[in-house]
Design a binder for these strands. Structure first.
Lengths: 197, 197
DNA sequence: TATAAAAATTAACAAAGGATAATTAATGCT
DNA sequence: AGCATTAATTATCCTTTGTTAATTTTTATA
């Protein structure tokens, strides 16, 4: 299922884990391909699945009554993606998860993975590190809303993920930053004209 | 160190844990009292400590160049408090943690706790649940910035923690919500005058 | 390449928010 | 209780953002 190159890659990514630790996980994983614009998790879905993004980009969005979409989350290659409603809150997903590009996932049943991780201290320790990392990410995003202006949040996003602007329409970046597409367009204009923010 | 009533309380709080699981943790914990206005973690501090708030309220804030304070976090009784800079990012705390009331903490050395948890699967599983819970909390706060207006965020805060308004000055609630105290005052006026949002 | 569709920009106006300062209210302290 | 300090509100003015709609640009596709 995995070739030598991939094994090397994952051993490096999950450093500290042995090949046998990894193979247990990979044996219960399967590859899933989502075409661009395809839906990975439908709003209302309740299947506890966790996926590693090998390639591509997934967007989670909320659908407003008037039909407008608000993007809550973008996840890309080498990140994990899951509905936190399903996994953490154990409720149907309030959001829809859509591929923005042709996307390849390594998908795993969360409950099965759980029991495997629970019985392997080394894997448990890694899960712990991953959770801490995701918590830090989320806290940093909260900070950006409290401490930064919309323009500063936009610049920060571009700095941290420069290719995002070529992979996701600005209108989705705008709602991700908590503003409207029109407002982001004005911010971009201000930035382009050398203005401070 | 703990009386029967407290043991009952903690067994219920950390349900699924045995008394022996708990005592191991409590034996390495010590009580710390912070008077109102006192500092728990100074900006720049690097001590890896984790505390359970038995009583009181802690505020984490950022100090701007002009002297203004921006509140990032409020934590109260029966919640854990730690500098995520120190614990997760392993860097000196960028924020100051200050008690808003006379506060009683059960404090533990994070590194010592870690090794104890690492060697006890039941405790590890609980740590995992706590991390998931904190992640959910943080994600929900991100959602509130993306999906709600400032007024809606304020009403949501009051609904989830009604006594907060009597325990923390509005100016701190304002910056916690990402707005200025003046703006919160206007929002309160709009709400009082029966307006929508 | 031509055409249709979607995205981005711009405009105009209204609403909300930020900055500053003055005023009023609440709180703390001796 | 009286006084000083701090918090909250209000006012003014200016900036930013939201809303809607028109226009331009880009992208996708026949």
């Amino acid at each position: 299922m995995l070739n030598t190159e991939e094994i090397q890659f994952y051993l490096h990514l999950f450093k500290g884990l042995s090949i046998s630790d990894l193979t247990g996980l990979f044996n219960m994983a399967h590859t899933r391909k989502i075409p661009a614009e395809g839906i990975y998790i439908q709003k209302g879905a309740f299947a506890p699945k966790l996926a590693f993004i090998k390639k591509g980009l997934i967007r989670a969005y909320h659908l407003k009554e008037n039909g407008d979409e608000i993007t809550l989350l973008l996840r890309w290659e080498n990140q994990f993606i899951a509905s936190h409603d399903v996994i953490i809150l154990q409720q149907p997903s309030r959001f829809t998860y859509q591929a923005m590009e042709d996307t390849t996932l390594l998908e795993i049943d969360y409950n099965k993975a759980q029991s495997l991780l629970d019985n392997n201290p080394k894997l448990s320790a890694h899960r712990n590190l991953f959770l801490l990392h995701m918590l830090a990410e989320s806290l940093e995003r909260v900070e950006s809303f409290v401490l930064l202006s919309a323009g500063e949040r936009y610049l920060k996003l571009l700095k941290e993920k420069p290719d995002i602007a070529n992979r996701v329409p600005d209108k989705h970046l705008a709602t991700l930053l908590g503003i409207t597409p029109v407002s982001l367009s004005r911010i971009r204009k201000r930035i382009a004209s050398g203005h401070k923010h």
